[in-house]
């Protein structure tokens, strides 16, 4: 089959960028979407044109590196599917598709469809962890975890940090990403000691990065390739609110040494 693509081309962060039209003949239905772009790029290189830059790595839907908008839908809008796992059998001959990078102030474009998602790393660095220095852990079975809690933690922990939630949200909010990590750790007994601190720090860092608010409309949930539920946002809201009311000014205790 043959496809017509309109692709966002932007040389670097300073460039203004524009949509460019490409024709891709000879698309096989068993190809993945990224393999189709590989074929297009090989042709571009042979013609001496700059190939389209897009992020990708594992190509099995788990690393979270790939992702762009296909026709206004993050990852193409197929349930539980990243763009690397999206196969061309979902499209038909003559389809005209628009490919655009994730759009958010917090995700500046690096080139073409590649964006900088380091804001997510900084949010995790702000509190998305359990502080447990190597070697100081008790036996794995010392703390039982209810199966239901372990399962809920796993549901939330499945987040791959691809940024589709931000891209799909009309407000470019990162509530689902932040909620997923808060919810993951909040469901485990190991995560309780830092629960309040984590919610406060992560939400504040999220705001500092320039992500706007959640309006509870559910676009992120529909776009999430790991089908993380809106429930995690409620969980992080609850944790934040509770933590904010319990927060005390930090005091410095001197003379410990």
């Amino acid at each position: 089959m043959k496809l017509i693509l309109h692709v966002w081309r932007q040389k670097n962060a300073q460039d203004r960028g524009r949509m460019v039209r490409y024709e891709v003949p000879g698309v096989n239905e068993h190809m993945s979407f990224l393999e189709m772009l590989d074929v297009l790029n090989q042709g571009l290189i042979e013609k001496g044109e700059d190939p389209i830059a897009f992020d990708h790595d594992c190509r099995e839907g788990i690393c979270g590196m790939c992702g762009f908008m296909i026709d206004g839908k993050a990852h193409g809008g197929f349930k539980g599917t990243t763009v690397c796992q999206l196969h061309m059998r979902h499209f038909k001959d003559g389809d005209e598709l628009y490919l655009e990078p994730w759009r958010a102030a917090a995700f500046p474009v690096v080139k073409d469809l590649v964006v900088d998602r380091s804001a997510f790393d900084r949010i995790i660095a702000a509190g998305g962890f359990i502080s447990v220095p190597t070697g100081s852990a008790p036996d794995g079975n010392a703390i039982p975890v209810r199966k239901q809690d372990a399962d809920l933690a796993m549901d939330a922990a499945a987040c791959i940090g691809c940024g589709a939630c931000v891209a799909a949200c009309p407000n470019a909010a990162a509530a689902l990403f932040v909620g997923a990590k808060i919810s993951h750790l909040a469901h485990l007994p190991q995560g309780q000691a830092e629960r309040n601190r984590r919610a406060l720090s992560m939400v504040r860092q999220m705001n500092r990065e320039g992500f706007a608010n959640c309006t509870n409309i559910g676009e992120c949930e529909a776009a999430c390739p790991k089908q993380i539920k809106l429930e995690v946002i409620a969980q992080s809201n609850a944790d934040y609110i509770r933590a904010a009311f319990r927060e005390r000014p930090e005091t410095v205790v001197s003379g410990v040494g």
Binding site: M69, G72, R103, G218, E221
Partner: peptide, 10 residues
Amino acid sequence: SYVKKVNAHS
């Protein structure tokens, strides 16, 4: 803003 944006769910 996006050239093309579809709201899937809301």
